[in-house]
């Protein structure tokens, strides 16, 4: 099977990787780098469990070949916390009871992460639109939406 060398910055660390052409970004992240926080729920871009940030934008790791991500800056759920300090989004998902089974949670948080970066003060409708690619079968979305709003507020407060 044809292989290619790529390099990629994942959560602040550069990786030299040898990938096959078949490898999607999600395969490389999970199977090669061992970052299994990024989940696969459908493999077709519909469920959003594999949402990561690529060059600052929310993208689906199952809809991208690893070779396409050559040279990219990738942030996954594992890259959010600072030592043992949780990211405000992670804290808000806990305090707002936005987590049930947790399988969609990493993707939800990464979608929220890209949103807040782009729009530090989103309203509820914006958050609902932003999370539209992240299916959740447990929570009914009410609490995850609240959690993203709360985290955005928290992050604004910190910057001030």
């Amino acid at each position: 099977m044809k292989k290619k060398n790529i390099w990629m910055n994942v959560n602040g660390e550069w990786h030299d990787l040898t990938v096959t052409l078949q490898d999607r970004l999600i395969d490389t992240l999970r199977d090669q780098i061992g970052l299994t926080g990024t989940k696969e729920g459908c493999g077709e871009g519909e469920c959003g469990a594999c949402t990561i940030n690529l060059n600052g934008k929310a993208v689906l790791a199952c809809l991208m070949l690893s070779v396409q991500a050559d040279g990219a800056q990738v942030t996954t759920i594992e890259g959010l916390q600072n030592g043992t300090d949780l990211h405000p989004l992670q804290t808000a998902f806990l305090t707002e009871s936005a987590v049930q089974c947790g399988y969609c949670t990493p993707g939800m948080i990464m979608a929220g992460h890209a949103l807040i970066k782009q729009n530090p003060d989103p309203d509820k409708t914006t958050v609902k639109t932003c999370l539209a690619n992240n299916l959740c079968r447990c929570t009914g979305y009410e609490q995850p939406v609240k959690a993203v709003l709360k985290a955005a507020g928290e992050m604004r407060r910190k910057i001030k």
Partner: peptide, 17 residues
């Protein structure tokens, strides 16, 4: 808060997959 919450929000939780 759920006792397994931190594992779930950090991506540490291991599912069968």
């Amino acid at each position: 808060q759920r006792i397994d919450g931190i594992d779930k929000v950090t991506g540490a939780a291991k599912y069968a997959t």
